[in-house]
Design a protein around this nucleic acid. Sequence first.
DNA 1: AAGAGAGGCAACCGCAACGAT
DNA 2: CATCGTTGCGGTTGCCTCTCT
Length: 275
Amino acid sequence: MGRQPCCDKVGVKKGPWTAEEDQKLVGFLLTHGHCCWRVVPKLAGLLRCGKSCRLRWTNYLRPDLKRGLLDEEEERLVIDLHAQLGNRWSKIAARLPGRTDNEIKNHWNTHIRKKLLRMGIDPVTHLPLQEQAVPPAAPQEQERHQPPQQQRQEHQQPQSDGDLLPVIQPDKITTPPPAQPTAVAAPASNCGSASSASAGSAAASVVSPSCSSSASAPAAHGAEATEWPDPMYLFGMDGIMDDAWDGLFPDGGVDPFDGCYPGGGGGFDQDDGWM
DNA sequence: AAGAGAGGCAACCGCAACGAT
DNA sequence: CATCGTTGCGGTTGCCTCTCT
């Protein structure tokens, strides 16, 4: 299938996002949601590809994200879910409201994996390492931990560093997220409006505890999840919303999505759905 | 105080899946 | 049914920060 690149590689900026870019993207998505990611950077005035915008949004800018290290409860849940699901980070993330697959994946690779190794547990199979040395003697045990669809590609992670294990401080392994003063009240408009909207398609699996009837959301996440990620504090989103993108769309308040709205009007349906 | 090394995290890449036409 | 376009996912990389010497 002749796949086209998601964007023209030429003239597309890569690398770390600047505060200004974040501001543009967040403001745009909160105002309009995303019709399709491909056009988001154009309409938001960004020299990024849509894919990059989507990643930035889902992994960092979404208002319902929790920030900071996973607490012990979450860590236990991740380990448990990993034992069941393998490297299905998105599935795992779906069970941890406010956490992204990327975040969990990183945390696993940097913290949990080492922690398990130090405990003598194979982070891939969740079996004691001694048993790993022996030829796979307990297939039924493997099956218990690896769902069928998993078995095709699991065990690909390098297990080489088991012997050169860095010593990490216990407090590095699990540290409760720093108590952030909720300085800026999460905009009420956040709920049921554009933000949850855009989180809807991509992040639908990650329920927004603050805004939705989080189906499978374990308790004790709600309060923190309502906090905005740091960039939000910096931006002063009120201004963005008020300005209605006059600055970015000089035609004077013309909704760039006018041609995009199926019904010509608003941007979202009640299910956050553009798509 | 400076340099080297290690660790952690954000972002990118490429493939697969899915829906639309 | 085949093709195309978009989104989602998992693996990997590169840079920045922190720690140690």
